[in-house]
Design a protein around this nucleic acid. Structure first.
Length: 574
DNA sequence: GCCGTTTTCGGCCCGACTGTTTTCAGTCG
């Protein structure tokens, strides 16, 4: 029973309890527990075996007992009972926007509706409008919600969200009177996927901004629009919420809309202890006077805290760390001196060695490791031992051409075959500066099999780095079932580095795994995996993921100089 | 159901917007 499964059960219990009209605080206790378990960097089973379940925030006596039952028996009596009381299809109604627990219960009890299909039929037949609290407009909203649900492909990946957010914000930035614009929400926290976009504008005249926003070409539908908030749905089905606030309230607004909700709830409790009330508009004293904050620093300072970076704001211990003055000094994009994975026309890259080297240098990098695919990988044309020798000559030529300001290193992204062996002979690997190993095929193998391959690669003396350890493609395919705990421990033991791949579809390792790696002292590498020059511009997504995992510059290999990296790899820096 | 350097009981973040309502409930974030 892994963390995800337990978290899902508690979240499902919260939904059922909500439909039953239970006490909201009891429901929230289940939700909070689910979130904290999902965010846990250690395997819950390990915590349980150590008898430390009740050290997890939000887990008290009762929930600890439930976790114990789940771990011992694989099931939970209380959950089975709840499931028997409320049909699954009624819980599913909660997925429909604007349908919450009260309405789901109403539709079920008063109209016998137990599925989204039945809900749609009832709405079309006009059978909902006479229910208490409902009307013709509400019935239309239910239908619109079902339509939106059908169109929605779920959460979008960070890269897509980033592009869209700026496409919507840039025209607003041009407007007269607009002082600041920023994406907030999970995008600013650099979560790997984003549900809705939260956009923030500081301006004295909201209506001008709102009007421009409603008329942007990306807008398919205006969901709601008031003096401070407008929500739209884009043609691509993404909901975007725009808030416009006065510049003197920018700090509280940015803080509030960046979230996470759990982080904000924690901060507000802290504010209350100090006799303050915190909202998106201001901090308010008990006598009703406001403290306006133009910056986030001021908000946190008023609560006695240093600024907490957006990437940390998940209520995963960052508030406690801030109170105790032990917030990590997080790695930044500018800390990266090099990049240890990119591709060229030698395999499946679009651009040449020289073009890629120039692009890397133009972005302030001092070195980069050429890592074209080895030949065994079916895609494109990969490199074999002879190619690597010829490529080495070209690398040296490029290094001469670029002078001393930049250094290309010779490497490879060697394929780990289905049986765990590598795709190139040891002699070929021995001639390279650094070796990156990766699993691209056989990702559907059993947990034992795929873990064996990853561990075999890490134990090969020539391998320095394991790239994108799970092989996931966000929104397209799950990663392999690789035992990450085993990979992390083996990497620590062998002194090998694990990659945080910057491509927004990969972000592999993810934030939770990074946090575990940092705790275990495993060295990380933040790699662009660029396949064209623009690929170097995606590195901030990997940096964001590493920051979400509390990584500092010392945790990241490519914050070091080229000589230090080569020395780490145990090779001459000559 | 959790939690406590005021509390082991009585709290539990705060506000916008909508649609249904004559003052508020539901949903959302």
């Amino acid at each position: 029973m892994d963390n995800r499964q337990v978290a899902d059960i508690f979240a499902a219990m919260a939904d059922i309890l909500a439909i039953q009209g239970e006490n909201i605080h009891r429901i929230n206790a289940y939700r909070r527990a689910a979130e904290n378990i999902a965010a846990l960097s250690r395997p819950l089973e390990e915590v349980w075996r150590a008898g430390e379940v009740d050290t997890i925030p939000g887990i008290g006596t009762t929930l600890a007992e439930k976790i114990d039952e789940l771990m011992r028996t694989g099931r939970l009596e209380a959950y089975e009972k709840l499931k028997a009381q409320v049909p699954e299809g009624v819980v599913a109604l909660l997925q429909v926007p604007d349908v919450g627990p009260r309405k789901a219960a109403l539709f079920w009890k008063e109209r016998g509706i137990t599925s989204i299909e039945a809900l749609e039929a009832a709405a079309r037949a006009g059978q909902l409008r006479d229910l208490p609290g409902m009307g013709a407009r509400s019935e239309e909203k239910v239908l619109a919600g079902i339509e939106a649900l059908k169109r929605r492909s779920g959460r979008i990946n960070l890269g897509v969200a980033w592009e869209l957010a700026w496409a919507l914000l840039n025209p607003l930035r041009e407007l007269p009177g607009v002082v600041q614009v920023a994406p907030a929400g999970s995008l600013r926290r650099m979560r790997e996927t984003v549900g809705d976009l939260d956009l923030l504008v500081a301006a004295e005249d909201p209506e001008t901004v709102m009007a421009r926003f409603r008329e942007l070409p990306q807008v398919a539908e205006v969901l709601l629009s008031g003096p401070t908030k407008t929500s739209i749905r884009t043609r691509t089905g993404v909901q975007a919420d725009l808030r416009v606030l006065s510049p003197q309230r920018w700090g509280t607004a940015l803080q509030y809309f960046t979230g996470s909700q759990a982080h904000n709830i924690h901060l507000r409790a802290l504010a209350q202890e100090r006799g303050l009330s915190l909202s998106e508009y201001a901090l308010k004293r008990e006598d009703g006077t406001e403290i306006l904050c133009a910056t986030e620093e001021e908000v946190y300072a008023a609560l006695g805290l240093p600024l907490i970076s957006p990437e940390l704001r998940e209520d995963r211990g960052e508030v406690e760390a801030a109170l105790e003055g032990r917030l990590p000094d997080l790695v930044e994009l500018d800390d990266l001196q090099g990049d240890l994975q990119f591709h060229t026309t030698w395999s499946d890259g679009r651009d040449t060695l020289l073009e890629m080297a120039q692009a890397a240098r133009a972005r302030g990098l001092k070195y980069a490791l050429v890592t074209d695919h080895s030949h065994g990988l079916g895609i494109a044309r990969g490199v074999g031992p002879d190619d690597l020798r010829r490529q080495r000559a070209e690398i040296e030529a490029v290094n001469r051409q670029m002078g001393g300001s930049f250094r290309l290193l010779a490497g490879v992204e060697v394929e780990v075959r289905a049986d765990g062996s590598l795709d190139l002979p040891d002699e070929a690997l021995a001639e390279l500066d650094l070796v990156v190993a990766a699993i691209h095929s056989g990702l559907r193998q059993s947990r034992e099999q795929v873990t064996m391959r990853a561990l075999a690669a890490l134990r090969n003396p020539h391998v320095d780095i394991l790239a994108h350890p799970t092989g996931r493609l966000i929104g397209e395919r799950e990663g392999s079932e690789v035992d990450l705990e085993a990979v992390l421990h083996t990497a620590a033991e062998m002194g090998k580095a694990l990659e945080v791949n910057c491509h927004p579809q990969r972000l592999d390792l993810n934030d939770v795994a990074v946090r575990r790696a940092v705790d275990l002292g495993v060295l990380l590498v933040i790699n662009s995996d660029a396949h064209r020059v623009e690929g170097f511009d995606l590195r901030h997504f990997g940096v964001g993921t590493a920051r979400r995992g509390w990584a500092t510059p010392a945790d990241v290999l490519n914050t070091r100089s080229v000589d230090e990296v080569l020395a780490w790899a145990g090779r001459s820096s000559g």
